[in-house]
Design a protein around this nucleic acid. Sequence first.
DNA 1: TCGATATTTCGAGAATTATCGAATTATGGA
DNA 2: TCCATAATTCGATAATTCTCGAAATATCGA
Lengths: 109, 109
Amino acid sequence: MDSSHAIRALSALAQEHRLEAFRLLVQAGETGLAAGVLAERLGIPASSMSFHLAQLANAGLVAQRRNGRSILYRADYAAMDGLLGYLTENCCGGEPCGAGALSQERASA
Amino acid sequence: MDSSHAIRALSALAQEHRLEAFRLLVQAGETGLAAGVLAERLGIPASSMSFHLAQLANAGLVAQRRNGRSILYRADYAAMDGLLGYLTENCCGGEPCGAGALSQERASA
DNA sequence: TCGATATTTCGAGAATTATCGAATTATGGA
DNA sequence: TCCATAATTCGATAATTCTCGAAATATCGA
């Protein structure tokens, strides 16, 4: 992951509707959710949802596949992983950030 | 960290100059760097740099303190940590994303 | 084939963000 | 006090992003 790719991913998540949609997709798991279902859950028009999903897809954060009349979107965990890895390496001095807090959370889990 | 705070942090990092500035601050460590030094390294006017630093500060990602005529900015590792924690918990199903890849990186480190 | 459903694309307008020079504020030294 | 330096704020403009209805595309079932 290079910085321009990271910026695209960060931009994709830096928006209320898209962050929420991505969270729903993460919860939904491998099967994913149809575009229409997401639009309904977020309470926005289908065309707006489509616009946002295109940005998430462009950033590589979601994948899509057709299922009958619907198009199912699913979160791409590896892409999210890549973003977290980039941030950890480039914006945290290579350590889990602050060299403490995150590790503590993990230890307590 | 709630979602609106996360969005502010993501937005702050989702911009070429700000991501680069933040990376330089992470490298610089606790002492930080003066606003003018950052502007020079990024090759942008002081007023533009000031605009971007204000956004990073607003997102809580950087802290500032005056040192003589300069204002030194430093990365707030805890804030970055909070963002990574939020993304891990809310956008990765609570597991290090993909329940594998990140763990593997850590294991091999 | 026809009609209904699901989604995307298009086009226009509103809102937000980024850029940069000029003016302003704050500090330190002579 | 006066001047130079360091930064921020202001104001205007450019660029980008967001929103949403209407139109177009694709799929399914009768």
